[in-house]
Design a protein around this nucleic acid. Structure first.
Lengths: 347, 347
DNA sequence: CTGAAAGCGCTTACAG
DNA sequence: CTGAAAGCGCTTACAG
């Protein structure tokens, strides 16, 4: 007999599992989704069948039934390319897992932001993810909120009460980094600020100041240089700091891109890193490991945050469709201080 | 009446469109998918309905019917983090659009590669995407092929006859870059090779040699330094080149990461870029715009290549399921020479 | 605790 | 050229 009915390899469905285990598809579904209300024996038979058949649920089928047809928008303005890349990786990965579509809109300035929001709405998105710095724009959040579109803010340091957020504790992270430099023996520590409109930037600076004050070390005004999170702004800030008569022995940059800029300046001036100058960053984007020496920084689990943002948003969307209403969840992910070769005790 | 039946915003289905246009869902489907076999009048009514209702097809529903349940594997070994990030972005984006699932496996060395392949097969993937350098591993390709798993090779410079591939023309790209440096007036041009096991690396070197030869300029052996596509290898290669008694006025690096390394060395030696040394790269990853000065490089549309790879693989999978067999398609994407600030006429 | 029925949104055959 | 029927794989109510 010609193998007309032969399944393509890998096309094991939940019906195959059910048949193989001698149960109904429903029972198989319950086991696979971890429902407790299944007899132990049946559960084990289903689990065995899943293993033997190599079953993997088809997410298109699942999401068609559960989420219905969800669409998630991402509205961003001008974050670092590397940061956005990593975040999008997480967003797309989770979207694919959850079977939702992703629409991305870029905007620059308030006017183009209204237009971008409009495009997202016309495309029928059911919720929007706001990466920094838009996560801190009350107008943006309000505009979406007024139209009944759920929002999740990513990496805001000042989460709004009723807007779910995914973030790390920027204050504690910057505090840990400052302590680390102090413990190495540095006392003349320069700081390059991030974009002051961006709440994490404010918090990182505050943590730096507080930690220095607690250590009883005065920070001259000239030791805190303005920056905008861009490489270019890191360059000029570092020049400012390194041209001081009494220059710092360490520079704490509010992100990795600015640290890359600071390193370039130091290299240009012939300063050895970390021998004559320690440079540390924040975020741990791919740039950190491309630099030489590799950058000591605070690891922010950006990809995981992207995934978490999608999950949080979907939960919000489902609640809304079901007419439920819950308090906004604020997820604080773990940061990590990653020691690499760009920092050492002062020479 | 309580709005029990009210649709959630954005949940416009093809049935809504059909009703609004006064046709059957099938006719609506045909119009939406661009079938020509529809009367002009009906087509226009459907198109109007799509516009007015803001209809967007639900891809989960579509893919459930068309692709069935496809799963795509990505098997990679050790490419640059930035390169892989960009590629994955394209792969995930297209997968989400096509409603297919993505499974990613990393391997290092032959043994772990067999294990990774095994895991992908057990997960029931219907096809595998091979980024560099695995795209050039005949063993890997053969192993998958023997089990009847379609493969698409990304960024191989030596596409195998019967394995579909997505790539740029590395030879022409490297040729264009070499010409560009020659046209600027450079004659002492150093070259940092990529991993010699990687076919694009071979081709880029060959193009460099050929173009120099055509220009009648001899390339001393010492001007071609070995590298492995890593930042670290770029560092030592650049040291080698810049320590020569008669050092080059320009360095052509086989990728951006190595160019970043070369720049660091130049900065460390106090060489001004591009005044005293031009540095150029290849790929245009995010690193290129993070460096200072920003890097002149060959733009490879990596994200688009990721999308194209998924599409090519899906086509292959569908053909296979339908029992069709076609010749393997080899897609050559456009590169672009991006002039930035790291290159200039010799000082 | 278990299962038969129905349907998520879409498109592939199959009739006209 | 157009449409009624069926089904992709899964899970949500609804009965027992």
């Amino acid at each position: 007999m010609p193998q007309r009915k032969r399944k393509t390899p890998g096309a094991v469905t939940i019906l195959d599992v059910a048949k193989h285990a001698g149960v109904s598809p429903m029972t198989a579904s319950r086991v696979i989704n971890g429902s407790t209300r299944v007899a132990v024996e049946l559960r084990e038979r289903v689990q065995a069948a899943v293993r033997e058949l190599g079953y993997r649920p088809n997410l298109a089928g699942r999401s068609l039934r559960t989420t219905g047809s969800a669409r998630v928008g991402v509205l961003y303005s001008n974050p670092s390319a590397a940061y956005l890349n990593e975040l999008m990786l997480g967003i797309l990965e989770q979207s694919s897992l959850s079977g939702v579509q992703v629409l991305v809109e870029k905007c620059a300035g308030m006017q183009s932001q209204r237009a971008a929001t409009q495009r997202l709405l016309e495309a029928g998105v059911d919720g929007v993810i706001l990466p920094p710095p838009l996560c801190d724009s009350p107008q943006t959040v309000r505009e979406l909120d007024e139209r009944g579109i759920p929002v999740v803010a990513v990496a805001t340091a000042a989460p709004m009460q009723d807007v779910p957020s995914v973030r790390i504790d920027d204050y504690q992270g910057a505090r840990a980094m400052t302590r680390y430099l102090l413990d190495l023996g540095h006392t003349r520590i320069g700081f390059i600020q991030g974009d002051p409109k961006h709440t994490p930037a404010q918090l990182r600076l505050q943590a730096f100041r507080d930690t220095m004050a607690e250590a009883g070390i005065a920070v001259p005004d000239a030791y805190v240089a303005p920056g905008l999170f861009t490489y270019r702004s890191g360059l000029s800030a570092a020049r400012q700091l390194l041209d001081l008569p009494q220059r710092p022995t360490a520079i704490f940059c509010s992100n990795d891109d600015m640290a890359a800029g600071a390193m370039a300046v130091a290299h240009g001036m012939g300063l050895r890193i970390p021998g004559e100058l320690s440079v540390v960053g924040f975020d741990d984007t791919p740039v950190a490991t491309t630099l030489w020496p590799e950058l000591t920084t605070i690891r922010q689990p950006v990809t995981a945050m992207g995934k978490a943002a999608v999950s949080a948003l979907l939960e919000r969307i489902r609640d809304r469709r079901a007419g439920r209403s819950r308090e906004a969840a604020h997820q604080v992910m773990k940061y990590a201080l990653v020691r690499r070769q760009s920092s050492a005790a002062p020479g």
